[in-house]
Design a protein around this nucleic acid. Structure first.
Lengths: 239, 239
DNA sequence: AAGTGGTCTAGACCACGAA
DNA sequence: TCGTGGTCTAGACCACTTA
């Protein structure tokens, strides 16, 4: 039984009200003062909850005016550790996972560095192809220490969402991550697996996920650019 | 004369200490309590400053352990409204801007929607190619209302960094933004302008920048994937 | 057990937008 | 002018890491 912070309750409740249409697009949320009373928490807590809604693209805040619900259907789940599977599912696609395969490999230099473990340590290597509405859309690989998910190689068939599986079965609550995003042209193998022309544009994402500041997984995703885009909220300006 | 929040001073100071090597990679920052005393501010203010350092990839925080400086050379300027020019410059490239050209066009549907103005309004359209160490690396277009930057079309030659120019000359302090990121294969024109093969992979970014919740610019960037990658911090997990 | 960051409160004053 | 969000304080208690 993990303790849930109050700002999370407030965040969850506000998000539910927005998604259910209690607060419609264009409506203003109650003022921070009103929300304090409604949820019986301090303003700090309210503001922390609202901050998450901003980062996920649900609301737009203007000093002196208020906090307004914006069109979130096209811009949800920004800036959070969300798997491609989850994102595509949220966008309304029917998802299948194909060719899931788990083996044990020795950590290469880059992978070891990202996971902060010694080179050549044995680690799990999970591979699969994601289909959205029957169309091959992404190839995903995950690397992680064996002691973090003992026996996962025997349970490949049980996995539908990798992060959810780690959370439900192994108790790993991912709390942050880092992505490096670029693009490449499909080589022969990629074009076969993703059913594209050779040289088709692909988005590549390299991600490290963290639990309390310690690396949990290193993930490589390769996605058909004609089927996917990333959305991202930028906070502040640094010159 | 705009008022600078204290957390910004703390943030700037800490970042300067990190970049100058006063706090080296692997070192721990002083504890939040010590920083309170050092800067004579409350813990809330310290934490807000440190939050920015986390988002920019300078530090890694672990409850019960401390706040540790991490290798920031490869992962700086995450999650902030930073122009490609600024990012490349920070990475040590020598930047030139070529073929800068400003005209007035009528806002098309998508552009008008992003800028929250009526369709067919006259707007400025700024175009240019960015060279890094002499190599064409990105094509950038900016769209913005004419009343936000009157006469900018007469001053094309003065612009080196677009956001800095808007800030310095017109007093627009961008405080947030939204990106939509994808990829595409270079068409003929793009391959000519960026000096690549046709079908080379390009990263595309569509961005809206905001000042106090109101749109200021809509920007389209097209970047050679072999010359650039985006780095991104993910906060929290939403399932 | 000691020390770190994580959460939270109840107030205060300031800056901006709208009427 | 008034009401909104933006900044800030000085405390308190909790959860995690390390020894």
């Amino acid at each position: 039984m993990s303790k849930i912070p109050r700002y999370m309750d407030v965040y969850t409740s506000l998000k539910a009200h927005i998604r259910s249409g209690d607060y419609e697009v264009g409506d203003f949320l109650p003022t921070e003062g009103d929300l304090e009373e409604k949820y019986n928490v301090s303003r700090t807590t309210i503001r922390k909850a609202v901050q998450s809604l901003i980062l996920e693209g649900y609301v737009n805040v203007q000093q002196g005016r208020g906090t307004q619900v914006i069109d979130f259907r096209s811009t949800q789940e920004l800036n959070c550790v969300t798997s491609i599977t989850e994102t595509l599912r949220n966008r309304g696609y029917e998802i299948e996972v194909k060719n899931i395969y788990i083996d044990v490999v020795k950590a290469k230099k880059t992978t070891a560095a990202r996971l902060e473990i010694p080179e050549n340590t044995d680690i799990y290597h999970v591979q699969r192809v994601i289909l959205a509405d029957g169309v091959p859309t992404a190839m995903v690989e995950n690397f992680m220490s064996m002691d973090k998910a003992k026996g996962i190689d025997q349970r490949a068939h049980e996995i539908s969402s990798f992060y959810n599986f780690l959370e439900a079965e192994y108790g790993h609550h991912i709390d942050s991550g880092k992505d490096i995003i670029s693009a490449k042209s499909a080589d022969f193998i990629e074009s076969q697996l993703l059913d594209t022309k050779q040289n088709a544009a692909l988005i590549t994402i390299r991600r490290v996920t963290y639990v309390n500041g310690k690396p949990l997984t290193y993930d490589k995703s390769t996605i058909r650019a004609d089927k996917y885009q990333l959305e991202l909220a930028l906070v502040g300006r640094r010159s």
